[in-house]
Every structure is written in C-alpha cells, then in structure tokens.
Write a protein that binds this DNA or RNA. Structure first.
Lengths: 239, 239
DNA sequence: AAAATTGTTAACAAAACCATAACACCAACC
DNA sequence: GGTTGGTGTTATGGTTTTGTTAACAATTTT
C-alpha cells in the first residue's frame, strides 16, 4: 500500500516542489502551510511520515513536532534554515527523527524520506502480524507453491529449484498475484498495484504479461492451472 | 593537557555541531565523515575518545570500531539511529564503550563523553609507565567465496590467494555487495550506503564501478557470475 | 611541479523491455 | 447457429535500461 506523507511548509513553491516529487514516488501526499492545520491533518490522516518546516506562521515546527510526539509515533523529518537549531531538533526537546538544512537537494531529501519509511515498513510488518491472526505472510521470505518458488530477496523465481529468467514487470506481477493467492483480482486492481496509479494505458497489457508468465511457469500455458482466468473479472493465482 | 576527541560523522551539519560543542568544552577536536579516514586519523592522532556514527559511507561504524578495538584502547562512543543495533554495539562483536540513539540531546552526549574521558584519566595514570610493546594483531574477518576472499581487516581482496589491487571505492562496494550476498540491491540503496546520503550524482556511477570490479574478480567480465545484474533493480552478489 | 592514481561524468552502443495493435479464439447468450 | 463481448496470442517498433569506453577533474604521490 502506498505511503502517506504529510508536507508542512509555508513556502508555496517549495511545498509544491516537495509534493510533486513525493507524488512522483507514488506516495500519497497531504499538504499544508499552517502549523495548526498540520496537527489536525496529522490526527485525521495518520500519515506514515511528516516533513515539517521549522519556520511556520502561528504554531512553529518545534511545537508541532513536540505535540505530535506525545500522541503518535510516525517519523518526522524537519527542515530548517539554521544550523544552530539542530541541537534542538534531534534532541529530546523536540525529537525529530531526521533533519535537513536548507538549501538541500531534492535527491537527498527523497533518500532520507525513503530511509525513514523503510523503518516504518519494518515496524509495520511486526505489528500487523501481531494484530491479525491470519497466516502471517512474511513479505521478505520466499513464497513457495509446490515446485514454484518466488524469492523476494534475490528477486528470482525458481521452478524445481532452477532459476527462471523473469523480466522486471513479470516478476512484479507474479509476486503480486502470488501474494494474493486465491483471490480473483481485477485487471484494474492489478494495473493500479503493479503498474502504479499513474499508469494510463490499456488493460489488455495485463493479459499479455499473464501470457508471458504462463509461458514460464505453466507446464501447458494454454491450460493454465496456476494463473487462472476469472471471466469478467481478471485473474486469480492458485498455488 | 586537553583531551583530544575524534568525531566521525558523515552528516556535515551534525559533525559541525558536535565539533562545536566539544570545542566549547576545551577539547581538541579532529573530525571526518569517512570511515577509512577515521582509521587513519585514529592511528595518527591517537585521540582520547572517539565519537563514532554507525551509518557511514564506505566502512561503517561497526567496522571502524571493530578494527580499532584490535589495535588500540581508547573509548568509543557510538551514535546510532536504530535501537535494534544496540546489542551489537555494546556486545563483543563491536565492543563500543557507550552508545546513544538518535535523536539525542547534546547535553546528554557531552555528559557521556565526559564520563568516558574520566575513565581515560584513571587508566592513563595507572599505565603510562607500563606500556605494551605488543604490536596490534590484526585479526581477520574474512568473507570467503570459493577462490575469492574479502579481507576486512587487511582491507584486501584475494583471488586464489593472490592479492588484487582495489581502489578504495571498489573495495567498499565489493564489501557492501558481499555482505548482502544473495539479495538484489537497488542502485539507490547502493549509492546511499556506499557513497553516502549526501552524494548527489548519477546512479550510473554504480555501473561503472561494478564494471571495474567485474574486471578484477570475474574470469569473464562480460559474463558475470559473481556480481549479477538484476534488471530493473540493480545488482546482486552471488558467492 | 610533474606524474600517477582515482572518482565521476558524458556519450554512444547494445540489449532488454514493454505497450499496443491486430487478429484469432472461445464461451455465453439469444 | 450466429452474434457478441471478453480473452488469447503474436509481432513489432519505440522506449528504457544497462554496458562500455574514454575523457575529465580531483586527489595523492613522487
């Protein structure tokens, strides 16, 4: 699922640049230039990460961070123009998780945001596994279906322990299908999750890729038993 | 005589903040953002205390600490962003004297630094006369993959027991890949971990370095089997 | 100061990838 | 049995990604 990022920055141009770049990474973006609104939004939207400027009209970034810290635990990345403020930012007093001093490169900001979100991912897996008593599906391990193994870490698919060459999209698609094994998935959903929401194209694309997948993992591609067609809907992966 | 403190932190701003605060306490400060330079400086300057960040480009803090521990005995205070690393830090594996998790307050850091230096003062008095003239015995943590050995301690790569000349970045890169053997690593991740966060350049840089590595460790560089390309992602080291 | 070494970038070549179109097929409904 | 709409299949050309080399800049060594 896409991460949600709250951008709190009163400089309109910077705010938009940030939002644009984050959106390009397929993050959901919520933005505001006001400290008080930031609090409201944070409570309502429960973002996975907050990018927070220090200099804000009204309630400043320090305050916002401090207050949020008492209520929630999402990581906060602070932006500041003054190096002297850093003590305060990463210190106990405010307690941000990371910071950047202006001017900063967008690349670095993205890298750091990504790093913070990686941390979220780890804890998220732990906690969701604890909550649901569903069969815990470790996202990192190897999905195995009989003689078929989908190895996340190596980004490799093996059939009878023999690695099979997969194109990137093929791997992503197979992984997505396999992760939702036994559920009929619509082409639209598949497109959205594997190709990304910004993809604007023909849903027949899925068919073609499914065909290629079948070629590689089905003994008889024309009589598919693993990736089954669900007429009127899309496809379903059966172990 | 004033104490000498070595600050190893790649985040320039934090590095400066640390240096500034230490200098205010009348300590002599030597600083670097690079793990390897840290080793050199430590050997040359023989500081009384080292403040060492874990996340460093190239040689990370764990390594630096581990290597130094075999040669010298000054206290090491480690900085980390992740609570999970603590066991490792204070455990035998790394053996730091103290640690702080980011974010921390400058006040607390200063307090701990002072405490560690107090300990130095005591031992210094006791042992100034009876110095050990035993040369440091570099113990080898060697990653071995068939005929390929990556010697952490000596910072040397051997193919069929014959040392191979490696540029620093090449070694760092190879080491990083080898440490995460069997996992597909994205160019972004590689850049972040080997070149550092603030690196702002082209990800093709990785390609070029990989090429050079392959030239040195692959029998047939164009048909790489050790450093495998994972299309759409990056590279993977297979033993 | 010259020379060697090293890291980075640019530019081009080569390979892989993928969306789409066009047509064939099939299954359900009338 | 024919029609219709959904799905299967294949080929293709444009795009993206990666490989490779060389040149340049920066650094270190001599």
């Amino acid at each position: 699922m896409a991460y949600k990022v709250l951008v709190v920055e009163d400089d309109v141009t910077l705010q938009e640049t940030l939002a644009y770049n984050l959106a390009r990474q397929e993050y959901d973006v919520v933005k505001t230039g006001n400290g008080r609104t930031a609090l409201t939004l944070a409570r309502k939207e429960k973002p996975d990460l907050i990018i927070l400027d220090v200099m804000l009209p009204g309630l400043d970034g320090f305050e916002v961070c401090r207050i949020l810290r008492q209520e929630m635990s999402m990581p906060v990345l602070m932006l500041t123009a003054r190096a002297e403020e850093i003590d305060k930012i990463v210190g106990l007093e405010v307690g941000a998780d990371d910071y950047l001093t202006k001017p900063f490169s967008m690349r670095e900001l993205m890298a750091r945001a990504k790093a913070l979100l990686r941390r979220v991912e780890l804890t998220r897996e732990e906690t969701t596994a604890a909550q649901t008593d569903q069969p815990p599906k470790p996202q990192t391990a190897v999905l195995t279906f009989g003689n078929l193994a989908i190895d996340d870490g190596r980004r490799e698919v093996r059939l009878n322990d023999k690695p099979i060459r997969m194109k990137p999209k093929e791997f992503d698609l197979l992984q997505f299908l396999a992760r939702h094994q036994g559920i009929a998935l619509s082409r639209d959903l598949i497109l959205e999750r594997v190709w990304g929401w910004s993809y604007d194209g023909n849903s027949r694309t899925v068919d073609v890729h499914v065909r290629w997948l079948r070629e590689k993992i089905e003994p008889e591609p024309s009589k598919a038993t693993r990736i089954v067609t669900v007429r009127g809907v899309g496809y379903r992966f059966d172990g």
